[in-house]
Design a protein around this nucleic acid. Structure first.
Ligand code: ZN
Length: 673
DNA sequence: CGTTTTTGACCCGCGC
DNA sequence: GCGCGGGTCAAAAACG
């Protein structure tokens, strides 16, 4: 178990040891999966609703069917209103379920159910409880009876209404989902194309995809657009800061593009790495020896390019080559020099780090992990644990888990690599989130990244963290079940409410404090960065997770907003899409930072462009980005709340800038610590 | 009996 | 070239 902290004594130091949390639960998740699916749709909707409107209108087109989304949104709102009252309760109930079940639909149902229950309960209480129930026998006051009946009738009516809405929503959802899927496919295709393009040292602009051509004209425009979105979001959300405790940081050093590679893998996931990395960038995970690296893994690494087995490519098979290499290639490269590794290869991995407050040794992300190492980090007393994904044979994904020296309550989990297998729904959420974060970071922040972002982030983080407020973290029931996955983000908030995204619920047991994403490019190659971004994008796009990601992003965003105030007006985060998100966890902010190690500005620019393009292409993506940005901004802007305007300003710089990169991980890491 | 954790050793890149 | 720090390997132990 969870021992990290708790169980085994080592904990502090040794903490690593335990842990096995096994996320387990993959299977059950089927329902979840569904939810995921829906998620996307929802997400899309959100994006749309929230941010896009502007953009969509303005710019881009968007093929997506907005309409559907729009509708969704409306509906959702309705729902939201009704529900609002009971939120807390509902959440609680939901929490009980754990998010497992929830699909969108499910959620809805749950919600409804919950509401119902509440109502009933009230009534009873207010009235004479029993009497109502037993009406038959009860002799109590007739009046009460009547009242009760009336109440029941009302309730029933309400339920009926809700049911109808539910149906409607479902229909909408399906529509949206369908559309989403188609779009996704398109997106993927585009991404692939893009990659190919990127591979070559192209300039940013080229990225465009055929489809986008239309837009192509000005990628720049697109970029701009994006920013705008962010901005807009930002304004909306603003608050952000909130101290939210959770943060996800994506460090992307390199991204592996591959996400897509995993085509199948549904989740491309990239995992992010946190700050820890100080050096990570240097060599990400690879570490040491491959020496024997025997088996599969080794092979993978080595051959990556060559082989890569598995994937049953569902959708993307096409991409293959490029990404493959990316993953691990790097490792070997050194030795062998002459490999043709394309740029893509260079890029490789993006790391995403997720910070969460949790007692548990590990956050449940829905994947199964095997610990393969533990080391004391120089900086802090807490050991860093190394895990490898065991969901699939050759899955290259690795993660590092470490506690902050400062706040032991903060658990920093860094993910690296893309899964080469489909992820369970739960995992999806995380993955998507991280991926999204990463992508976001990469794309958005890259440009400005360095400096500004980084800087901004740090401060915030530090500030916020300290507030231990929640130390409450105690053990409660920590792991709900890993399975769920609400993971990453979600994890957090258990206690509180559960934010529900589109039917998904996020729990924050751990209380993620913040999500930050940072992308760094190790190599100097400009291309690499671009690749990374692309990869990220691709990954996201390709996967259903994408949606999830978006959702996550949104969620976080929302959460941040809500935290402060509750639902915001326009966007009121609360009800996006009709769903309400709660942020118990208080996502404070999502930050994305991209850093380029290399000095090349050009590369960075390209990357950015690419990312932008990618994003632009997909409305959802945009939305996500926007969300991410927003949150980020908000956080930056102020802890206190950021003003809309202010935020926007901040943002822009980022977007536009090309700054140099900064420091990538290092800084980050430091910050974290 | 299989799988995962533990843990010391090894490898690698980097800075000096 | 040496030492440092990070990351990984793999044998042994621990679990279930
Ligand atoms: Zn995996």
């Amino acid at each position: 178990m969870e021992s990290y902290v708790g169980v085994k004594g080592k904990n502090v130091v040794g903490g690593g040891d335990v842990g096995r949390e096994m996320p387990v639960a993959p299977p059950s998740s089927s329902s979840a999966a569904v939810g995921m699916v829906e998620f996307p749709a929802a997400a899309a909707g959100l994006g749309y609703a929230g941010m896009t409107a502007k953009e969509a209108g303005g710019g881009y087109q968007e093929r997506r069917v907005v309409v559907g989304e729009m509708d969704f949104f409306k509906t959702a709102e309705k729902r939201g209103e009704r529900k609002e009252p009971p939120p807390a309760t509902a959440t609680a109930a939901a929490s009980g379920h754990a998010g497992a079940s929830p699909d969108d639909l499910s959620l809805n149902k749950d919600d409804l159910t919950i509401n119902m229950g509440l109502l009933v309960g009230r009534r009873r209480n207010s009235g004479s409880e029993e009497s109502i129930v037993d009406d038959g026998g009860v002799s109590s006051n007739d009046e009460e009876h009547r009242e009760a009946k009336a109440a029941l009738a009302v309730t029933k009516a309400e339920i009926g209404r809700l049911s109808e809405e539910n149906k409607r929503l479902k229909n909408m959802l399906s529509n949206v989902t369908t559309k989403y899927n188609s779009l996704q496919m398109q997106f993927v295709t585009l991404m692939q194309q893009r990659r190919s393009v990127l591979a070559a040292p192209i300039h940013q602009q080229e990225l465009l995809d055929p489809e986008k051509k239309e837009q192509e004209g000005s990628q720049q425009q697109q970029q701009q657009l994006i920013p705008r979105q962010f901005i807009s979001l930002g304004s909306a959300s603003l608050q952000p800061d909130v101290e939210a405790p959770h943060s996800v940081v994506v460090v992307g050093g390199d991204v592996c593009a591959p996400s897509s590679s995993n085509p199948d893998a549904a989740v491309p996931a990239m995992m992010p790495l946190p700050h820890f990395d100080h050096h990570n960038h240097h060599h990400p995970i690879h570490g040491g020896r491959e020496r024997g690296s025997s088996p599969a893994e080794a092979d993978h690494h080595r051959h990556h390019q060559q082989e890569q087995p598995p994937p049953p490519p569902q959708q993307q098979q096409q991409l293959p080559p490029s990404w493959l290499p990316a993953d691990k290639v790097p490792r070997f490269l050194p030795g062998k020099g002459p490999e043709p590794v394309p740029e893509a290869a260079t890029m490789r991995k993006a790391r995403v780090s997720v910070r969460a407050r949790s007692d548990a040794p590990m956050i449940s992300d829905g994947c199964q992990w095997r610990k393969y190492g533990q080391k004391m980090a120089k900086g802090n007393p807490c050991p860093r644990a190394y895990y490898r994904c065991t969901m699939a044979a050759g899955c290259p994904v690795r993660k590092q888990v470490q506690r902050c020296a400062e706040d032991r309550t903060v658990l920093i989990t860094t993910y690296e690599g893309n899964h080469n297998h489909p992820l369970p729904p739960a995992a999806m959420a995380m993955a998507s989130t991280t991926a999204a974060a990463a992508s976001m970071l990469l794309s958005g922040s890259m440009p400005s990244a360095d400096g500004s972002l980084m800087a901004g982030l740090d401060p915030h983080r530090r500030r916020r963290r300290p507030p231990p407020p929640a130390s409450s973290t105690q053990p409660q029931p920590p792991r709900p079940e890993p399975a769920q996955l609400q993971a990453a983000l979600a994890e957090a908030a258990r206690p509180v409410a559960l934010p529900q995204l589109f039917g998904q619920k996020l729990y924050d047991q751990s209380k993620l404090s913040a999500v930050q994403a940072v992308a760094g490019t190790k190599g100097s190659d400009g291309g690499a960065l671009a690749d990374t971004v692309n990869a990220a994008t691709a990954a996201i796009a390709s996967d259903p997770n994408f949606t999830a990601v978006l959702a996550a992003a949104l969620t976080s965003y929302i959460g941040s907003r809500s935290g402060s105030g509750g639902a915001g007006a326009g966007g009121s985060s609360g009800t996006l899409f009709g769903q309400k998100l709660y942020d118990q966890s208080k996502l404070s902010a999502v930050q994305a930072v991209a850093g380029t190690k290399g000095s090349d500005g050009g590369a960075l620019a390209d990357t950015v462009n690419a990312a932008t393009a990618a994003i632009a292409s997909d409305p959802n993506f945009t939305a996500v980005l926007a969300a991410a940005l927003t949150s980020y901004i908000g956080s930056r802007s102020g802890s206190g709340g950021a003003g809309a305007g202010g935020s926007s300003g901040t943002v822009q710089p980022l977007m536009s800038g090309g700054g140099d990169s900064c420091s990538r991980d290092d800084k980050i890491g430091e910050q974290n610590s």
